[in-house]
Design a protein around this nucleic acid. Structure first.
Length: 512
RNA sequence: GAUUCCGUAGCUCAGCUGGUAGAGCAAUACACUUUUAAUGUAUGGGUCCUGGGUUCGAGUCCCAGCGGGAUCACCA
């Protein structure tokens, strides 16, 4: 049995009262909407009032100010909030005042969704409002909504509990309209990227989420089981190897907004499922990819902010192309004063010790370099910066550098001290690729849990011949955090992962 | 996974060295025909996250658990 608060019981009683009066609290009829709150507020004026003489508006009641024989309410639709004015003798023209005295004043609540008909006017305090001539209950709300009051841009008693916001995003969006703005911006960002790619002739594709070999990245996967085939399957950690197969197949430019799944820790910048945009372009290299990436991001910043200057906490990020380019060895030299470019694994290990960076025996040369960069350099790159030319050991899918031995043609894009994108000239030599996979197997044997598996089918594809190709993965959630100035990934995902709520008497179990 | 802070009415919060559980908003009732955090008067509403312990007595102190945040580790 559901435990109900006093207010929840009262609302259920009101619902019954409405039904007794012959009012369906959940009518099936469509309600015609002619105007939005934003349109009325923006365009209403005395000289244009003819256009607002016959308004039909629907929204959620967010506030009621009862004045006796008249009252004011605040309705909210997707575009914003607007005041309504309800006068007893206007909605009850005859002797029977039940509709006003009982239905409007007693049986409606904050949170109910109603439709109103009426006309636009401006109150004597100057607020554009709807003078209501009739109203219809469209949906009765049985659960009291936290009431947030606002005055002069300040809000009072706003719900700040993150658990409430993330578990009950629907309620969060009702009472905190700016939350909807963040998600609208997320979609605008994705649409801008999609338009950019489509305009350049790219083809959007879908590749498998369930994979029998979780490839394309170094991460721990979620595992599941397919009953009919009686095999384990993994939720993808990346789609890279599938997109490259499509390049082998003859497409020149493919992309996918890939929902990836990694069975690792959660924090402000990590959710177990997250979105990466990957795209692969034939006959290009990583220099071309840097140019394309900075142009793309400049365009996205302008689409969201009308400028390349984007606020991020107390900083301002400038997305004006071109971005700075720094080699990883120069980055380490700049921030530690140490030249690690010629060091072998043992020397790197010593350097880590000097810099107070913890190492494990499983770490190869690549991971050691990565640790030094991650600990000492990464956080300093606030403005968009390409870090380029990584050691070969940490990049098993990347083409060897055309002129610098021991390095690969790879870049990561750092913004506000975080990695946003990772790209390379793709390795297309099947013999080299097979050797790199075999190196990964050795790392796995040394205890590296995230080393890659060998994907023999991918090698077979490469053996048919893949054109020289540039590829990139861009962290969409993190980019969205930057561009909407949100400090947590939970604020750019509608439904961030949470530990399930325990309910009384419930014992959730699923057979696999 | 580790450390640390938090959990009191529908919401925001107070509750001191342990002594009958508080406010504002929301709700209920009444008044009020241009208010806007409307106002005035009155009323109801609590598993103080859960379970143990100490104590004559626990919202408060101790232990364990549950949930959330932050930091760290892994990672994008």
């Amino acid at each position: 049995m559901q435990h109900l608060s006093e207010q929840e019981i009262i609302r259920r009683e009101k619902r019954q009262e409405l039904e007794k009066l012959g009012i369906d609290p959940y009518p099936a009829d469509a309600f015609p909407v002619t105007h939005t709150a934003a349109e009325i507020k923006k365009n209403f004026s005395e000289e244009h009032k003819a256009h607002f003489a016959d308004i039909s508006f629907a929204g959620r009641i967010m506030g009621i100010r009862d004045m006796g024989k008249a009252s004011f309410g605040v309705l909210q639709d997707h575009s914003g909030r607007i005041q309504i004015y309800v006068k007893r003798d206007d909605i009850c023209t005859g002797e029977d005042k039940t509709l006003y005295n009982t239905v409007w004043k007693k049986l409606l609540d904050i949170g109910d969704i109603i439709g109103v008909k009426g006309y636009g006017f401006i109150t004597k305090t100057g607020e554009t409002s709807i003078h209501v001539t009739s109203f219809t209950l469209l949906s009765k709300s049985l659960k009291p909504l936290p009431v947030v009051k606002e005055a002069e841009g300040q809000s009072f008693d706003a719900v700040t509990d993150p658990e409430f916001k993330y578990r009950q995003r629907y309620a969060d969006m009702i009472i905190n309209p700016q939350v909807r703005d963040t998600f609208a911006k997320r979609t605008l960002m994705i649409n801008t990227i999609r338009d950019f790619l489509n305009e350049h002739g790219a083809l959007e594709v879908d590749t498998p989420v369930l994979q029998s070999i979780p490839g394309g990245a170094a991460a721990r996967p979620f595992i599941t089981h397919h009953n009919a085939l009686d095999i384990p399957l993994y939720l993808r950690i990346a789609n890279e190897l599938y997109l490259k197969r499509l390049i082998v197949g003859g497409f020149d430019w493919v992309y996918e907004f890939s929902r990836n799944f990694r069975n690792e820790g959660m924090d402000r910048t990590h959710n177990p499922e997250f979105t990466i945009l990957e795209f692969y372009v034939a006959y290009k290299d990583y220099f071309w990819m840097m140019n394309t990436t900075e142009n793309l991001l400049e365009q996205v910043a302008i689409a969201l902010h009308n400028t390349t200057d984007v606020p991020a906490g107390d900083k301002v990020l400038n997305f004006k192309a071109p971005f700075k380019r720094v080699s990883i060895y120069d980055a380490v030299k700049d921030h530690t004063g140490i030249d690690i470019s010629e060091m072998d694994e043992a020397a790197l290990r010593d350097t880590c010790k000097k810099l107070h960076i913890e190492t494990t025996p499983g770490m190869g040369r690549g991971k050691l370099v990565d640790s030094i960069f991650g600990e000492k350099c990464e956080k300093h790159y606030i403005q968009p910066t390409f870090i380029i030319d990584y050691p070969v050991e940490m990049s098993p899918l990347t083409k060897k550098h055309r002129s610098k031995p021991g390095l690969v043609e790879r870049f990561e894009l750092m913004i506000n001290g975080k990695e946003i994108a990772n790209a390379y000239s793709e390795l297309n030599d099947p013999v080299d690729q097979r050797e790199r996979f075999e190196e990964q197997v050795k790392l796995m044997e040394r205890g590296d849990e995230e080393a890659m598996f060998i994907d023999h089918d991918f090698l077979r594809a490469l053996e048919y011949g893949m054109p020289p190709t540039a590829g990139i993965g861009i962290g969409i959630d993190r980019l969205c955090m930057l561009l909407t100035n949100q400090p947590s990934i939970q604020d750019v995902l509608f439904f961030p992962q949470m530990r399930p709520e325990k309910r009384e008497g419930e014992d959730l179990k699923f057979e696999i």
